[in-house]
């Protein structure tokens, strides 16, 4: 009887504390800061993890992994704006605040909200953004689109003229 009760207790605690960490090393984050000319780049080497029951999440990426169609623009971006030798990384650390509304065992697209700290060019800023979590046969995709004011993070004389004041950042990460 004691063993029976103990095993029930253990089983219950497993189901309560069972959590899964989803991860990817090939997440996709792109940005668009086009004003008079197209300024767009994609990074397909984003390292990201999140935990399904707490909603804790992290995205980290390397600035030099952003690819532009225009090689000259890529050099300017790295050298003059992001100073990617001095600040090689950018990251977001935070939480999905309403993770309980996502049922990871049921296919569907769930609206979520993320809050946390975004660090770019050595400058940390609190942000909050709506997004979606799509569950499809155990595969999870997180998507969001948000805007940042470039002058909050970097300086440069072209911001506001050739470069837009705000950059639209698109996150599209498929997890295993």
């Amino acid at each position: 009887m004691k063993i029976f009760l103990a095993s029930i207790f253990i089983l219950l605690s497993i189901s309560i504390f069972a959590q899964k960490t989803y991860s990817t090393k090939t997440g996709q984050i792109s940005f668009d800061a086009s004003a008079t000319v197209d300024i767009k780049a994609v990074n397909n080497q984003v390292d990201s993890k999140f935990i399904d029951n707490t909603g804790q999440m992290i995205f980290s990426l390397l600035i030099k992994s952003f690819k532009f169609a225009n090689g000259l623009m890529e050099d300017h971006f790295n050298e003059n704006y992001m100073e990617s030798t001095k600040f090689p990384k950018a990251d977001f650390k935070g939480y999905i605040t309403n993770i309980a509304s996502v049922n990871f065992s049921k296919n569907g697209t769930y609206s979520v909200n993320a809050e946390g700290t975004l660090t770019i060019h050595g400058v940390a800023k609190k942000i909050s953004t709506p997004g979606t979590i799509t569950v499809s046969n155990g595969k999870v995709t997180i998507k969001t689109l948000f805007k940042i004011k470039l002058k909050d993070f970097i300086t440069g004389s072209y911001i506001g003229s050739q470069i837009a004041e705000e950059a639209a950042i698109t996150v599209n990460c498929e997890y295993q």
């Binding site: 090393k25 080497q45 390292d47 390397l62 600035i63 030099k64 992994s65 090689p88 990384k89």
Partner: peptide, 13 residues
């Protein structure tokens, strides 16, 4: 390839 830095792995593009 070109080294872009270090996350959990050293990354090459």
């Amino acid at each position: 390839g070109f080294c872009t830095g270090f996350l959990s792995d050293v990354v090459i593009k």
